[in-house]
Design a protein around this nucleic acid. Structure first.
Lengths: 153, 153
DNA sequence: TAAAAATGTTAGGTTAACCGAAAAATTTAA
DNA sequence: TTAAATTTTTCGGTTAACCTAACATTTTTA
């Protein structure tokens, strides 16, 4: 029904450009290469592709910038990323692992699934205080037991 | 730290063989092809690779079966799949979408993340009844409001 | 049981996304 | 301001995983 529009790789590049632009200002081939841990020739190749698709502006040997269209995609991906990081932290996944896994999940999940995850994060974050069930969940992780078990057993 | 051992594709094939074996008994090239929606030559090619790696037994024009090593991998993937399906259903994601997304996630998530998800599913499933917070979450999805909001506002 | 149908394999091709080595352009610094 | 260093691109490869067309084998059935 809803088909994926762009490859994981295209999304990664646009997201990388977006982050670098936000954090450092200028975006150059080597920045992207080190951010994504790829070699410069791979970056040049992809920049060509992204230019032709209208996602970025890039003059030879010059700077890279997102077009409005590229920005739209990048923001979408970055938003999914943020949601996923928040979700994984709810689960108690460590930051480093959360980063890695969010980077994978952000390319594969259906909009509807993303929407449910976003709601879950919002559900917890807009609660007046840390919800009881979350505390119980963490307790359950440690002990394998439900908090109220003693009452019932 | 923990590197991924097999490609998504290898995992998909082993999982497919596992499912077909369980549901239909015999596993043939065409079964795998239709299960994975690939063409028979692609399947033959991969079966060769899986044989060489020691994951399956396969004689030309004959049946396919998992070796103990292949079974181990397939069971691991299938277990992740099951956990993910349960998790997505908790979230209220429809069956069809859950299937699609579980098939993607099962190849990319870190063990630790999987472990947390498994715990969450277990936390809910071993609770004496449907937890209140889940009901509240569903309510929140529909209305964007917390159940107890009325009391507080 | 031999011809037809179905299934499986081989051979050759495509594509995306990476790579290294070498060339070209730009930047730095002597 | 030119030579050295750095950065970027070009060029030619590689690999994984798919494909189609053609061929081989097995199974079905007349």
């Amino acid at each position: 029904m809803f088909k994926k529009k762009f490859s994981s790789s295209v999304e990664d590049y646009l997201e990388a450009i977006y982050f670098i632009e936000k954090e450092r200002g200028d975006v150059r081939t080597s920045d992207i290469a080190s951010f994504l841990k790829h070699r410069p020739p791979s970056v040049t190749e992809m920049l060509d592709k992204l230019s032709k698709k209208g996602f970025i502006k890039h003059e030879k040997y010059g700077k890279v910038s997102l077009t409005p269209q590229g920005m739209r995609v990048a923001e979408e991906v970055a938003s999914r990323h943020k949601t996923l990081i928040s979700f994984l932290e709810l689960l108690g996944v460590d930051r480093e692992t959360a980063e890695i896994d969010a980077c994978k999940m952000e390319h594969v999940l259906n909009r509807r699934t993303m929407s449910r995850l976003r709601k879950l994060v919002e559900f917890v974050q807009t609660a007046p205080e840390e919800p009881e069930w979350l505390k119980h969940y963490r307790h359950f992780i440690k002990t394998g037991e439900h908090v109220e078990c003693k009452k019932r057993v």
